[in-house]
Design a protein around this nucleic acid. Structure first.
Lengths: 340, 340
DNA sequence: TTGTAAGCGTTATCAC
DNA sequence: GTGATAACGCTTACAA
């Protein structure tokens, strides 16, 4: 086991000073050609690689960005990571991933941990609990310390930072409009509780679409789900004897549960009821019937977020702070869970 | 924007020396009670947190572990990350995630990047291309430098390191035996190319099960798929006019493609053909019919890997190197794609 | 052309 | 009890 090679060792080995080695490896013009050659050859031979930690300490930047997301099993977040990773790697950055498990405390802890030198900036989507509490002091502190923060998907208005979101309202409208277009009159909404920003926005979109089409908005046609765990049962109860011809669900799991329940109650999909989901995951694609969904382009969101963050990191600190909100367009992917 | 507080600043502020501050914060008995109190109060007030990078440099350890996986969209890998994350966080470690995209070069690059001080050790599953090439010099080098490495799932025999795998052969046998038990005689196998270790092992298991049951092994009943992209078409061609009553697929995607094709050809699942998959993902659970699968316990694998790695990291370096291979048992989850 | 020294933030050793 | 100093590995003025 040979420990990693350092400048010091090379210097000793070659009987020159450390700074000479450092300069030679950076191809500085201060150093004589032959010395440079010698040093470079040696470094190459023994595969010298500078120590990132030392560099980080010296430069006060780590070249890594931290991602904190609520959960990883959600396919959407996975695709976002993938997008961030891609851009980050291209630009020479590493990616540190932490999961908050939707817990406020864990989110704060993770953030503090990473903020103490491990990361140059953050990309994150807030934990459900955080949004519920409405406590964002950890975000504000991080920003105050001069660490850039890019929020995506589950964002919050009153924090001044860059944001990458999809147009949830319009995405939902698109979905509901499509249902209306194909002739649905009694459209149910299956969504999450209001404190989850996206749930609220999609609910707005649903209501707007109905309103604009002159259809009545009936609160009893809206189901708000708190816990993923109970969702199947709740959806079952909700839809069992409801007379619907269209269902808009804010994620693919809800959509699939809806389809199952409806089928069990002898409603055909899409002949009797059309169902649309949100987020284009593996499930939507491969389920039978395959799901018509509002596609969310997680990878692109990740790429955007990474680009914004790195851009900010590489800019001179003194530049004026200006925050942008990027809205990634949603698309409607038509498949077999809706009438054509 | 206030920059992070350092020992130096506290020292200046309180007009004591840096080392006094350091000691006071560590509650050293060398320091007088009142000074300690004063310093601690100040640190608490201004929320002092030591800089991780400086600590890493000093201690020559980063308290982070690097995960390199081929792809993240595979649900299995996601669950492994989740497991690693959980254990790592509990033990005060961070997790750095890199994706190799199944590319050998990217895997090597990622590894070199992280090995230069960013990580104390690695948990990884090899890229397909790496296994194909059979070039493992980067693994060996990392180990030689004294960085512990834990391989999981896609492992390779002739590298001396800890491994966490599932019993692929037995898992496959379990699946095929189940098919045999429920009366299947003509069982097809849909697997990956042989250089992917798990594909090969599962193929062995399939063959063994048939052999032990006295059933013929017919090569024309085995489909080896190279590229995920073409899988659907290939499976379609393969099964179209094949006379089978059971299918064992080495992942859930293949299993679902098989079901689709069979259904399109008017074979009922499970009445006419029973299908079993491998890896218990979201798809298996929610597909209709829900899939009988060999469950792989990714989260547990991640936990095991993390525990082994951290254990090794915290042990004194001098201890003799001894490597273990943990085999995580598979289970058979019976659902509706197989006859009962 | 090469070397010295200070500094990034911390801790440990030793001196006062 | 408290403080100066060296060290972790590297970069960069500034001397020589």
């Amino acid at each position: 086991m040979k420990p990693k090679l350092t400048l010091k060792q090379i210097a000793k080995e070659l009987d020159v000073s450390i700074s000479t080695v450092s300069k030679a490896l950076k191809d500085s013009s201060e150093i004589g050609e032959d010395t440079k050659e010698k040093i470079k050859a040696f470094a190459k031979l023994y595969n010298y690689k500078p120590n990132n930690i030392a560099l980080s300490l010296k430069n006060r930047k780590t070249k890594t960005i931290g991602i904190i997301i609520p959960e990883i099993v959600h396919h959407f977040f996975t695709t976002v990571i993938s997008g961030v990773e891609k851009v980050a790697n291209e630009l020479g950055y590493n990616v540190l991933v932490c999961l908050s498990d939707n817990s406020f405390d864990k989110e704060v802890l993770n953030m503090e941990m990473l903020a103490n030198g491990s990361t140059d900036g953050f990309i994150m989507s807030l934990a459900k609990e955080t949004m519920q509490k409405g406590d964002y002091h950890h975000l504000q502190e991080t920003i105050n310390q001069g660490m850039p923060l890019v929020l995506f998907d589950r964002v919050v208005d009153n924090i001044a930072c860059d944001k990458v979101i999809i147009d949830d309202v319009n995405g939902a409208k698109k979905a509901v409009n499509h249902l209306i277009d194909i002739g649905c009159k009694k459209i149910a909404l299956i969504t999450t509780v209001d404190y989850v920003s996206v749930g609220k926005l999609r609910t707005h979109g649903y209501q707007q679409a109905l309103y604009e089409a002159g259809l009545p908005i009936d609160e009893s046609m809206i189901l708000k789900i708190e816990e993923m765990e109970d969702s199947e049962r709740e959806i079952d109860n909700f839809l069992k004897e409801k007379n619907v011809d269209g269902v808009f669900a804010v994620n693919e799991h809800f959509a699939i549960s809806a389809i199952k329940t409806l089928q069990e109650n002898n409603r055909r999909i899409p002949e009797d009821v059309s169902v649309i989901g949100f987020t284009d995951g593996e499930l939507s694609k491969r389920f039978i019937p395959s799901l018509t969904t509002v596609s969310q382009h997680g990878e692109r969101m990740g790429e955007e977020a990474a680009r914004i963050l790195i851009d900010k990191l590489e800019r001179s600190v003194s530049e004026e702070d200006t925050y942008k909100t990027i809205i990634v367009e949603t698309g409607l992917v038509r498949r077999n869970s809706t009438k054509s």
